[in-house]
């Protein structure tokens, strides 16, 4: 107890703040887990095999790896637009009002409830306009190995598109890309999300005759 007493006020405040943010993160984590358990589930292998087959199809349809990456992002965007509604219906999160809120929501709730993946938010930049989501396991790449000629393929680029599409439904336009990927030899996966602009709903056109 004497030792505890020696801690400065600053230290105690810091710890309390840490505990608070952890508990907020912890709440988010619980929301994600609950949402996953409440809904129906499918084996991760089915998802991985279907996704892999889809990527193969896209590779067959397009010529360059760049094109494939772009197409995967676009497909993810379309999914994200749908996913936003599904998310709010099932997660118990009532709203996402800011870019900063979005970080915890995407990483802790979204990743958990859709992909059953534990993800964390880190590496905020100085003016809080960009953050990274870090995660170990990538269920989409469960069975995948990238041969050399596809080293530039961003296999799970779909996920970036999903995040981009879903956030745009919340009027947050972001840029989202894989910075590190376990498929390309890194120890973990990192997706970098940066805010481009915040949109405002525009008033309907007034077309009175």
């Amino acid at each position: 107890m004497a030792v505890a007493g020696l801690k400065g006020k600053r230290q105690r405040v810091k710890e309390a703040a840490g505990a608070l943010s952890m508990s907020k993160g912890g709440n988010m984590q619980k929301l994600g887990e609950l949402a996953l358990q409440k809904g129906e589930r499918v084996p991760v292998e089915l998802l991985a095999l279907t996704y892999g087959s889809l990527v193969r199809q896209v590779i067959a349809d397009y010529e360059s790896i760049e094109e494939v990456n772009k197409q995967l992002d676009l497909m993810g965007y379309n999914i994200g637009v749908r996913l936003a509604d599904d998310f709010f219906a099932k997660s118990g999160v009532s709203d996402c009002r800011s870019f900063q809120d979005s970080a915890e929501i995407v990483a802790k709730v979204g990743f958990k409830m859709y992909l059953n993946v534990q993800a964390s938010v880190d590496l905020w930049n100085a003016d809080n306009t960009a953050y990274s989501i870090l995660f170990d396991e990538n269920p989409l790449a469960e069975f995948t190995e990238l041969p050399e000629e596809y080293a530039q393929l961003s296999f799970s680029n779909l996920v970036c598109g999903v995040i981009r599409g879903a956030l745009e439904m919340l009027l947050l336009v972001v840029k989202c890309e894989f910075v590190r990927s376990t498929l390309q030899g890194n120890e973990m996966n990192e997706i970098r999300i940066s805010l481009v602009e915040m949109l405002r709903e525009s008033a309907p056109e007034d077309d009175e005759d």
Partner: peptide, 28 residues
């Protein structure tokens, strides 16, 4: 790169949400 054959087969039945799968299927 960690060779895929060096990785263990998934330790237990992993699951993902049905919504995630169906949304992927929609896009397919």
């Amino acid at each position: 790169t960690l060779n895929i054959l060096d990785q263990p087969l998934a330790r237990q039945r992993g699951e993902v949400s049905l919504s995630a799968y169906l949304l992927l299927f929609c896009e397919l």
